[in-house]
Design a protein around this nucleic acid. Structure first.
Length: 790
DNA sequence: ACAGAATGTCATGCC
DNA sequence: TGGGCATGACATTCT
């Protein structure tokens, strides 16, 4: 009797709620018409997840507000429960409907007993009809204004779910084959419809719904479900008109539809599916379950009804119910279901991220702060899916998606009770999305370990990457500048900052140009400069060229090279290579040419040098700067009246030089001077070449240093990338390990304690090892071996 | 006047 | 052995 009282009281409360809803009805329609489409688009989206969410919300709202007692849902609900029990007996299936019934369990802790009866409520409302006579109860509900009574039923059902055992015992009589049950349900529904008609309710709806049942095979409306939503709504409204109760009617219809869908779903589960692996189920999750039936049922206007609840889902009652739903789910369904959730998330098509986004968006549509929403999601997730702490990571991690396929296997390994029906799980997730923060806080009370927020994890990872790079750079002893430099080098292929002027290209050419300008009398175009005059001879010219070509990078600064003023700067054309070897070796030049050019080009006459030169050459000051510009050997040669040019003296081959000397009758001093001039000249050129080579060597070394630095930078970059990759891999492995561990269940379906067990990876796969067990003992039978994920 | 670079010269060693 | 080259060291020159 206590139960009856409770149910009755509750029925009254719900009835009141329905009345209030009636008053709002018009607004509701408007709201639906105007805002549903956008909401739909925002919340639902194109994916199956959309339907899930919608249906879920609908279900919630229906439970809270509006499953009309008239609806056959009640009857079907009981059937559903019965089916559920059967399914449970199969020990590998979790029926989503269970969740539905569970919603109100917590809401009315007292009614826990309810399990004892679904009939209880019916009796209370309906004048104590037999508990099993759902029809009567429903009829009474109709009379009473329906929604309340229906809700009561649902409550009872939930209660029953909460206490499965009693429920089972009471419903044993009702248990029959699924086929029989369906027929029976139809009959009951017809009875209810008749009663409703008597009450003024339109027969259309009932017939329609009944038709739905009868024509489960017909699926014409499946796809039209959304499109026809409004039409259906209209029809529903029309029915309401008949009854005179517009809203109730609609609600009733909704409830009926929902119930039908649930029943059908159950039937489908039992009859059609082996309860193991219906792809659609796994793919769509709980919602898919719910949705599938609805689609099959031609009738209904799920679209609209669903939407209506969505719009109203903000109400505390819905939230509370959702919360209760989650709680009940948590109680009723273990981690196994959670595992299925993973599948759901994994199977949510390639748009896992989108799915998550959609969820958040949906939440946002309900006016909840986004941040809160996310947290909410997390907390809910934790609350409802304590063992699924790692569900989201795969959801967001594309790499983990591949794992999802194998998850079912893992689940099976972990627990024999695992069910392939993920609907419950999915529903849980969805429900969680809509839970308000306060509820979440309470949720956390029941949660186990804190689960990582998927978004935060993503951000964390990305941030870690950046930070790690910096850390790595710091570890390498890189300063900011070096780091930035590294960045630049990494970005640009031309990391070499060497001055192009350092290029060792064709020094001989430069020499040539310079020399040609410097000495008109030089016999060799390749090396006519005074210092190089010696190479101007045929035999030596080639040698000189080759030698200088090998030297290559000698590049004194232009100003310095030309400071002697013999060469016309314009001839260098700014070519760095040409700047080499511009020294004034006038002593090699013929006096005439030397003098002439000096007079033209030389502008600077150092008094000191002039004096020195004058002293050395003993020339008279009046001979001006020409003498000053001349080299000492030139002056000496002039002073000694040497008949040859220094150029010839220096550059002639030994044989020719000797012949030349032999032809000329020179005294000892002259011969000595000529030999010294030749020696010094050659030594001068040798010195220049030597310096060139030295400079070239330096430049090459510098270039080598640059190359090494560049190579170092590249290696460092690679190292950083590898470190990053390793770090990411470690994180993934860790997350996967946690996820896997969280999904593991012992024989009793309980999760393993992280303080007692750990996962060990080996060539044969993943092993669950006790912490106190050493690696050596790892081969003992008690450990469980898992398939490798990857 | 001085520093520093460029250049020239010498001495030396080597081929 | 002498010529030539390379190079270090020093001196000179120049800026």
């Amino acid at each position: 009797m206590l139960y009856l009282k409770k149910y009755f009281t509750e029925g009254l409360i719900q009835f009141t709620i329905l009345l209030s809803l009636i008053g709002v009805r018009l607004d509701l329609d408007t709201y639906l018409n105007n805002q549903l489409p956008p909401l739909r688009e925002i919340i639902l989206g194109p994916s199956s997840a959309y339907t899930q969410t919608q249906f879920h919300n609908l279900r919630n709202t229906l439970d809270g507000y509006g499953i009309h007692p008239k609806s056959v849902d009640l009857d079907h609900f009981f059937t559903t429960r019965r089916l559920l029990n059967q399914v449970r007996s199969l020990d590998h299936l979790r029926v989503p409907s269970t969740e539905l019934s569970a919603w109100l369990v917590h809401r009315d802790p007292e009614t826990v007993v309810s399990a004892t009866s679904q009939s209880g409520p019916s009796i209370a409302l309906d004048n104590g009809g037999s508990l099993e006579d759902v029809n009567n109860s429903e009829a009474s509900a109709m009379r009473g204004a329906g929604g309340a009574s229906e809700t009561t039923y649902s409550l009872s059902g939930e209660d029953s779910l909460g206490a499965v055992a009693p429920e089972d015992s009471q419903e044993q009589g009702e248990r029959e084959s699924s086929d029989d049950l369906s027929k029976e349900d139809i009959d009951l529904i017809d009875i209810l419809w008749r009663q409703d008609i008597d009450l003024g309710a339109g027969r259309k709806v009932f017939n329609y719904s009944s038709r739905q049942k009868e024509s489960e095979a017909d699926k014409p409306n499946e796809e039209n479900e959304e499109a026809s939503g409004r039409e259906e709504k209209q029809s529903l409204t029309h029915v309401d008109g008949e009854t005179g109760e517009s809203i109730p009617t609609e609600l009733t219809s909704l409830g009926a539809q929902t119930s039908l869908s649930l029943q059908e779903c159950l039937r489908l589960l039992e009859a059609t599916f082996p309860f193991g692996e219906e792809p659609e189920f796994q793919a769509t999750g709980s919602t898919s379950q719910l949705r599938a039936p609805t689609e099959e049922t031609p009738s209904t206007s799920q679209g609209i009804p669903l939407q209506a609840p969505l719009s109203q889902s903000d109400t505390p009652l819905d939230l509370e119910q959702q919360w209760q739903d989650i709680m009940s789910i948590m109680e009723l369904q273990d981690m196994e279901v959670n595992n299925t959730a993973v599948n759901v998330s994994m199977n949510n098509d390639p748009n896992n991220n989108n799915a998550s986004t959609t969820d958040s968006a949906t939440i946002g549509s309900f006016g909840l702060p986004r941040s809160t929403l996310i947290n909410q999601d997390v907390s809910l997730h934790q609350a409802s899916l304590p063992s699924c702490s790692q569900d989201f990571p795969p959801l967001f991690n594309p790499e983990l998606d591949s794992i999802g396929v194998q998850r079912p296997t893992l689940v099976r390994l972990s627990s024999s009770n695992s069910s392939n029906i993920n609907s419950t799980f999915g529903a849980t997730n969805l429900t969680g999305l809509f839970l308000p923060p306060p509820l979440n806080s309470t949720t956390n009370l029941t949660t186990t370990p804190v689960l990582p927020d998927p978004f935060s994890s993503l951000l964390e990872e990305s941030m870690l990457d950046e930070i790690s790079l910096l850390d790595l750079a710091m570890e390498e002893g890189f300063s900011q500048d070096q780091a930035s430099q590294l960045e630049d080098e990494l970005d640009s292929d031309s990391g070499l900052s060497l001055d192009s002027s350092h290029s060792p290209a064709s020094p001989s050419n430069s020499d040539t140009s310079c020399s040609s300008a410097a000495s008109s009398s030089s016999t060799s175009a390749t090396f006519s400069e005074e210092g190089a005059v010696g190479y101007s001879t045929d035999s030596e010219a080639a040698t000189a060229e080759a030698e200088e070509g090998a030297v290559g990078g000698y590049q004194p600064e232009y100003s310095k090279l030309c400071r002697m003023g013999y060469q016309d700067p314009s001839q260098f054309h700014g070519i760095p290579q040409l700047e080499s070897v511009n020294h004034n070796h006038t002593y090699n030049l013929p006096l005439a040419s030397s003098y002439s050019e000096r007079s033209q080009l030389s502008t600077s006459c150092s008094k000191k040098g002039r004096d020195k030169q004058m002293q050395q050459t003993k020339l008279q000051p009046p001979q001006d700067c020409v003498d000053r510009q001349s080299s000492r050997d030139d002056r000496r040669a002039r002073a000694m009246d040497i008949p040859f040019s220094n150029d010839k003296i220096i550059n002639l081959p030994v044989e020719e030089f000797n012949e030349l000397l032999a032809k000329q009758h020179l005294n000892e001093d002259q011969l000595s001077l000529i030999r010294d001039i030749r020696r010094r000249g050659k030594n001068k050129m040798a010195a220049q070449n030597c310096r060139k080579r030295k400079l070239d060597t330096i430049l090459k070394l510098e270039e080598g240093v640059q190359d090494l630095q560049r190579e170092k930078a590249q290696l460092l970059k690679e190292k950083m990338e590898y470190c990053k990759c390793i770090r990411q891999t470690k994180q993934k492995v860790q997350s996967l390990s946690q996820e896997l561990f969280a999904q593991l269940r012992d024989e009793e379906g309980r999760p393993y304690s992280a303080s007692e067990y750990f996962l060990q990876y080996g060539p044969d796969g993943v092993l669950l090892m006790p912490l106190n067990m050493t690696t050596e003992q790892s081969n003992k039978p008690d450990k469980k071996q898992k398939d490798k994920k990857k």
